[in-house]
Computed example of a mutant assay.
Amino acid sequence: MSAAELIEKARAKGLWLTTAESCTGGMVAAAITDVAGSSTVFDRGFVTYSNTAKTEMLGVSAATLDAHGAVSEEVAAEMASGALAAAKATIAVSLTGIAGPGGSEFKPEGRVCFGLATADTVHTRTVDFGALGRDNVRKAARDEALAWMLHAVDSL
């Protein structure tokens, strides 16, 4: 899977993509915009590293953050939905996680929660990549997000 393939398929279907990233700090958007011609399917992405940014830019509820924490499928869902609406996109992917170092018994290092929103649905999932080191967790999360977006493009 490559970002170029994602862009090619999204362009062929007339789809618009957007991203809402926390732990990856814009790596998914960078992978997309590294490809020449990506502006035909990608208008903007959101890097919302803090909880304040998540609420202000994406409309993530403070109550959701308080109840579940930033690293949760509930927050990932609201991030994806907020990005989809703000960017007027067809598909939005979101990522929030603990790249490391650190973590806790309940939210270990390497855990990333993903959201994927379209006009009709919002799906979430959590992947525990393990304590691979900060750089490797972030790269793995980027690749997972791109693959999930490609699957969504193929499904539309």
Rank of each mutant, 00 (worst) to 15 (best):
E144C: 14
T124F: 11
G100R: 09
V112E: 00
A89L: 14
G103I: 08
L156F: 14
S72D: 00
H151L: 15
T126V: 15
S104T: 15
I91P: 05
T19G: 09
A119W: 10
I91R: 02
M79I: 08
K54F: 02
V60E: 04
T124C: 10
D135L: 15
A70S: 14
S61P: 03
A131Q: 15
A92I: 03
V28T: 06
A140K: 09
Y49N: 02
A141K: 08
K88N: 07
L58W: 13
K9T: 04
R142W: 05
C113A: 14
R134H: 12
R125W: 07
K13L: 10
A53L: 05
A70W: 12
S72K: 09
R134G: 05
L146V: 11
T40V: 09
S72H: 10
K9L: 09
K139A: 14
G37A: 14
A67Q: 09
E73S: 09
F114V: 02
G26P: 09
K139H: 12
E74F: 07
S81Y: 01
T124Q: 06
A63T: 13
T118N: 06
A83G: 05
E8L: 09
F42M: 07
A89T: 07
G115S: 04
S61C: 00
S50R: 08
L95G: 04
V127A: 11
A31C: 08
G130T: 06
T90D: 15
E105C: 00
M1N: 10
V35F: 08
S94N: 04
T24Y: 09
I98S: 06
D135V: 12
A85I: 11
K107C: 06
A117W: 05
E56P: 01
A12T: 10
G25T: 04
T52Q: 15
A10F: 02
H68Q: 05
E8W: 06
E74S: 00
D120Q: 15
T121L: 05
A77L: 04
A31G: 14
D135C: 03
L15K: 06
M149A: 04
T48R: 01
S2R: 02
S2D: 13
G110Q: 13
V71K: 03
I98N: 13
L17A: 04
S94E: 07
R142P: 03
E144S: 10
